[in-house]
Amino acid sequence: MADIAARGPTATVGDSRSSLHKLMQRKSTIAFLMALPLILLVLILVAYPAGYAVYLATLNKGMTRFVGFGNFEFLFGRETFWMVVYQSCLFAITAVIFKAIIGFVVAHFVHNIPSKGQRKWRGMLLVPWVIPPAMSTLAWLWLFDPSYSAINWILAHLGIAAVPWTGEADWARFSVILVNVWIGSPFFMIMYLAALKSVPDQLYEAASIDGATWWQRIWYVTLPMMRNIIAITALFSLIVTFANFDIVRVLTAGGPLNSTHIFGTWAFRVGIESGDIPLGASVSLFMVPILAVAATFILRDITKRGSEV
């Protein structure tokens, strides 16, 4: 670009045109130009906001004064903050474990359906994952309604007292995790199903001839063969679940008494709803080191996997 702008009406026109031509022909230049739209997108939507968040986190509430680590010091002293840390970890880890287990079991069932009917089931089982979470969570919110919901109605008919699904701290934690598991399991299912399909049938046949029971076949053949996919899916999901916002926001909005807040929702509560944007930025920045560790593991695993093949 600069080349063209700098070009004057002189005898060097031909030269600069050909050097521009050469530059355009270089593979690296072409590659850079083709990646440019994405690079710009990342810069505008990721790098700039991230840098801005770091800057914001160093300001006072009125955003008039630089306070350094003041916001962080304040957070460390707050009981709610440590509850959010605990709740975020509990939420992410529990949800991922259950998503993985359910996904694995369901993938096995689907894998054993004859291929004719399998597509139908695969499609239906993917539905929770495909519906926008905010909408499906809204449906869950209605199901969890203490007095008028279908779930409590059925429980009442069974003679069980109404459950305060979103009204009591532990039940509310259970509910947000349940909804997250419901939405996220299909992703695990589809990943594990793909992994299962890549295990050659002959290995199972060899194992059953070697004397393995179905459980031993899973333990000694399926799991080791799926190890990489299991690890990558779990870590990936851990990051996404940790950074969740919509489910908690719609279902409990962090309540009751902040007991279900996770980083995303609490940052929103503190920053937007309570008007302390620098403090909200500081809260959200806490996700970075935790997620960075998980991301490092993922990337390491992928490169390791790549070199194995």
Binding site: P200, Q202, L203, E205, A206, A207, S208, I209, D210, G211, A212, T213, Y220, V221, P224, M225, R227
Partner: peptide, 18 residues
């Protein structure tokens, strides 16, 4: 198969890769 006390050699060997 596991209780038949047989052993089988497969066309693609079916060795456990891990």
């Amino acid at each position: 198969p596991k209780d038949r006390d047989i052993a089988m050699v497969f066309q693609n060997y079916a060795l456990y890769p891990h």
